[in-house]
Simulated assay, not measured.
Amino acid sequence: MPFTLATWNINSVRLREELVLRLLREEAPDVLCLQECKSPVDKIPLEGLHALGYTHMVARGQKGYNGVAIISRLPLVEAAAEDYATLGHARHVAARLENGVVIHNHYVPAGGDVPDREVNDKFGQKLDYLTELRDAFHGDKPSKSILVGDLNIAPREDDVWSHKQLLKVVSHTPIEVEHFNEVMDAGGWADVTRNDIPEGQLYSWWSYRAKDWDAADKGRRLDHVWATADIAAAGHSSRVLRDVRGWEKPSDHAPVFATFDL
């Protein structure tokens, strides 16, 4: 049975509860993966979700920071929750659907402002997170799996508004892209979004700092949908819901969707 999945950095699930419910009403994905929930799990508002038929959830949370959740109208069970780089952060949770597909939801550290781990601990944490993720996939190669989330890296030249100007900006530096590609290679992951939309500029994030983000269009593709090689061909209908970035009091990220015939 086909199912549609969405991934979205919501930047506070409690502050933007109504935006989550609007997305679910208007787009009706079967599974919604949220990052940066900024809430303990027991404080995530569930009443509205349940009223719309989203009665299943696995999540990891903490007060005010980070946090990941997989919300679903399809039955699922928790499959894993790892603390990569031993940061003590709620950045990963995984769930298994009844068809056996495992969905991994990641919120990779943003990395701070300076792309040098010697002077910026946050950048080092980001690289360590990706290194441990790569090593985990080398040790236990995934199958029948989907990985989504705010990975905080725009890997391709056309994933940013200006490759040249962003080469020394965190999220598009060569060392981050190298780590990103090593994680993909280690797990045998395919980029479902770019398989569907192979050419052209494509963004999922626009800074709050831009007075008119839409006109300036200085975006980056930080949010990703991957699948393992054994099911990648089942993914299709990828899209970024850019208009959601323009909703009232929005997240700075837009949701990314894909459908899987599994």
Results as ranks from 00 to 15, higher is better:
T55L: 08
L32Q: 07
E26D: 12
A51V: 04
A28I: 01
P29T: 09
D42I: 04
V20L: 13
E36P: 15
L23N: 01
E27N: 01
E36R: 04
E26V: 05
S39M: 03
E47S: 12
P40H: 10
P45Y: 05
L21Q: 11
A59G: 06
L24P: 01
P29F: 03
L23C: 08
V13E: 08
E47Q: 11
L21V: 09
L24N: 01
Y54W: 05
D30I: 15
A51Y: 05
E17D: 01
E17A: 08
D42T: 13
A28P: 00
A59S: 10
V31S: 11
R22G: 00
R16V: 04
H50G: 12
V41N: 08
C33A: 15
R14Y: 04
G53K: 05
K38T: 08
V20T: 04
P29G: 09
R60S: 14
Q35A: 13
L15A: 07
P40V: 15
E17C: 06
L34C: 05
L24G: 00
G53V: 14
K38N: 13
L32G: 11
R22L: 05
R16N: 05
A28F: 00
L23Q: 02
R14F: 06
L24W: 08
V20Q: 12
E26P: 00
E27I: 02
L52M: 09
G53T: 11
R16T: 07
L34K: 02
M57S: 07
L49I: 11
P29A: 02
L24C: 01
K38F: 03
